[in-house]
């Protein structure tokens, strides 16, 4: 049953997405790819949509996948699944386990999870860069660099560095999405 599958897949994502934002990106990616819910490129398209609309990535992703796989009911099941673990854990902490974070074992566990999440995010970005920019998927296929994508990537990093030097902050994601869309259209039409 698709509803139950959606519910439990997203329940798992909700229960294990530490670190907020992109902390869950690799877990969601493998869930949607292995179930055939989205292709790699559809997944990346949707991350961009999620960045340009309000709300947490996890909820946006659950609603979108739920809706494309099982209509309105599907999206309700998936979204409930992704929110439920947070809701229950926080309720437990605020009502019963007030000192959960003061237990040293819990903190010790989290001290291992924190660097792991950062590593997972960086690895996900690297793998995406290898396949989308350099056309390198695995050892069995030859790499075919995509020059246009490499140029867009380089341009985005230059803007990032200039923003950091001049404005002392990173450029807003929406600005970068608009810029990259413009570059994509220019390369597509020329």
């Amino acid at each position: 049953m698709i509803y139950i599958k959606l519910f439990f897949s997203f329940l798992m994502i909700g229960a294990l997405s530490f670190g907020g934002g992109y902390g869950m990106v690799s877990l969601v990616q493998e869930t949607v790819l292995s179930n055939g819910w989205l292709s790699e490129s559809e997944f990346m398209n949707f991350i961009a949509v999620s960045e340009s609309t309000p709300g947490p990535l996890a909820i946006n992703m659950a609603t979108f996948i739920g809706s494309t796989q099982g209509g309105i009911l599907g999206s309700l099941f998936a979204t409930t699944g992704v929110v439920l673990p947070s809701f229950i854990i926080i309720l437990l902490i605020s009502a019963v386990l007030k000192n959960l974070l003061k237990y040293s074992a819990v903190n010790a566990f989290l001290s291992g999870v924190r660097p792991c999440v950062v590593g997972m995010i960086l690895a996900t970005a690297s793998v995406m860069a290898l396949s989308s920019l350099l056309g390198f998927v695995d050892l069995n296929t030859a790499a075919e660099p995509d020059i246009e994508s490499v140029i867009i990537f380089a341009a985005l990093w230059c803007i990032h560095i200039i923003f950091k030097k001049v404005k002392k902050k990173t450029p807003s994601p929406i600005l970068m999405i608009i810029l990259s869309a413009a570059l994509g259209i220019i390369f597509g039409t020329v």
Partner: peptide, 13 residues
């Protein structure tokens, strides 16, 4: 546009 945006997603992550 989305060909460009996909590159941006790598940058964002």
């Amino acid at each position: 546009a989305f060909r460009g945006i996909q590159v941006c997603v790598i940058y964002l992550i």
